[in-house]
Design a binder for these strands. Structure first.
Lengths: 225, 225
DNA sequence: TTATAAAGATAGTATTACTATCATAAATAA
DNA sequence: TTATTTATGATAGTAATACTATCTTTATAA
């Protein structure tokens, strides 16, 4: 039996639900490929439409603009990742084992998840690394936040923050440490591959060293405090 | 006597040196204000030109495009900050006192430096927080890197990394920790002001708590390892 | 069968991101 | 001093971007 995993998305993120039609799914699938290939700056709805074999207007019926689409993709990713984390830490008792598992999930490029046919999670993960922060680094972050566009990201941080507190109930900065782990997992990955002298992973270029660095950072803080 | 501080800039960043003329300085000064006010995405050379009282073509004579201008501004900022760090840690013996000083400088919004008349460092610092990472989060980061556009950022990281090593010569991740401190100083600041639930600084909204968090994070790692 | 919703086809507009040209004023070199 | 280079100003033009609007066709549902 094959299960289909559906991430429940904030309705305000789209004009028409892309999960509800073939065209919609194509928009998600091909936008991930296009943004991955050429970057978000040069990505346009026109190019996407040509790629899919529809028209610009067709894409605009689903998403107000390309920034909304990016926010949708990131929100989807955070929702999916929260599910992964809940799933993979489900029966673990020891909170530090849990946290190690979380760090590994955050820092590892996952192979394509068969449960979500139109989303390639591995490629999406790469997009999150390079483009993810652009979803909120805008002047309208406040408005977007009011519409709860970043709720999946916040929920994920809350989950990670709670595991941190389980590890050490006295630790003073669980939320900041959670958002730090998430951001650093991505930034160190980007630096490793693009500006390696900003990291200590120059030759290795493996995600395992990022995981080691994060574990060192996090558990020294939690054991000490 | 008033000293004028000049940051030596990479010549490939501009077509004509903006420090060399009144118009050039106006471009720097007003672009900082405009990007701060409306964000980088909506910033255009046309708006900038109108603001200054010149024409689009006038601005294009100095910078190839707005991304180059952003890279210039960030490079300037990192160069300036490295000078600040060198200056303010000059006579300090104890490396951990030094590192604390560095963290404070990284996380504090500095008031306008009189030595650089056309650059408002406080506003520029805010731009670095919100837009700084967009300078390198592009598909052409490799090309830009080859042209040494990010050298000031790398140099700064190297300086911080060396202080980290002074604190603990056995620490395994000095460069990654250095880039982590720098990025997190900015991200936690952005989150504090825009997505406060991602931090533990919700009510305080003061840079001092970010500094406390960073100190905790860094020195737990350095003392332990 | 009819209504209705989604998609396709086409057109049009304002803005963005440039490039090109020519005139003029200011600085500088012969 | 004049001649010449250099920076700026003024204006025009173009391709691409970021949309909006309308009309027709096709699929689906009542």
């Amino acid at each position: 039996m094959k299960l289909q995993l559906q991430i429940k998305m904030n309705e305000a993120l789209f004009l028409r639900n892309p999960e509800s039609s073939v065209l919609g799914k194509k928009i998600i699938q091909h936008s991930i490929q296009l943004i991955y290939k050429n970057g978000f700056e040069t990505f346009t709805f026109k190019k996407l439409a040509e790629d899919i074999g529809t028209t610009e207007a067709g894409v605009y019926r689903y998403f107000e603009n390309k920034h909304r689409l990016l926010v949708y993709l990131t929100a989807w990713y955070w929702g999916w990742l929260e599910f992964q984390i809940t799933y993979h830490t489900n029966n673990l008792q020891d909170p530090s084992v849990k946290l190690k598992r979380v760090i590994k999930l955050l820092a590892t490029t996952i192979e394509d998840d068969e449960q979500t046919s139109h989303v390639n999670e591995g490629v999406l993960h790469q997009i999150i690394i390079s483009e993810g922060s652009k979803a909120y680094l805008t002047k309208h972050v406040g408005d977007d936040n009011k519409q709860l566009f970043f709720k999946p990201y916040k929920d994920l941080c809350a989950v990670v923050g709670n595991i941190i507190l389980e590890c050490n109930p006295k630790y003073k900065y669980p939320k900041s440490l959670a958002s730090t782990i998430i951001e650093i997992a991505h930034f160190q990955n980007f630096f490793m591959n693009n500006l390696p002298s900003l990291t200590d992973f120059g030759e290795a270029k493996e995600e395992s060293v990022i995981i080691a660095f994060l574990n060192d950072l996090v558990f020294n803080s939690l054991e000490k405090s």
